[in-house]
């Protein structure tokens, strides 16, 4: 999988591309937690997430909790259908801040 980061409107847009599984979730977690440490607002672009497992979800939860503590923004945007299914199974679709598009996530 790939992690692509870019700055936009004062926030960082992190695009996750491919399969976020046990092999790759440690690098996703590290990437997100470094942004949280810098107290940057983050929009996670999940358009191209083909698969995510409990370890991938756990990385998002950990970043989300850190953002809450910091009082910074952490939004999951354009969540792909397979990723949404897993968020629903975890009953976390009501917990995360979700946006339909990256633009909506930036202006939320």
């Amino acid at each position: 999988m790939k992690i692509e980061s870019r700055e936009r409107d004062g926030a960082v847009v992190v695009a996750l591309v491919g399969e976020v599984d046990l092999q790759h979730s440690p690098s996703v977690r590290k990437h997100l937690m470094e942004l949280m440490f810098d107290r940057r607002p983050v929009v996670v672009d999940m358009t191209a997430v083909e698969y995510i497992d409990s370890s991938g979800i756990a990385s998002l939860v950990e970043a989300y909790q850190a953002a809450r503590k910091n009082g910074t923004r952490f939004v999951l945007a354009a969540v792909s259908q397979p990723a949404m299914r897993v968020l629903q199974l975890a009953r976390l679709d009501k917990v995360f801040a979700l946006a339909d598009t990256v633009e909506a996530g930036l202006s939320a």
């Binding site: 409990s54 370890s55 756990a58 939860v61 950990e62 909790q65 897993v86 199974l89 975890a90 009953r91």
Partner: peptide
């Protein structure tokens, strides 16, 4: 599931599916 924390989700997924 009321406890929002990382980890421990996997077994829940297995039983849910």
């Amino acid at each position: 599931l009321n406890d929002v924390r990382p980890g421990g989700l996997g077994t829940h997924f297995i039983r849910e599916v």
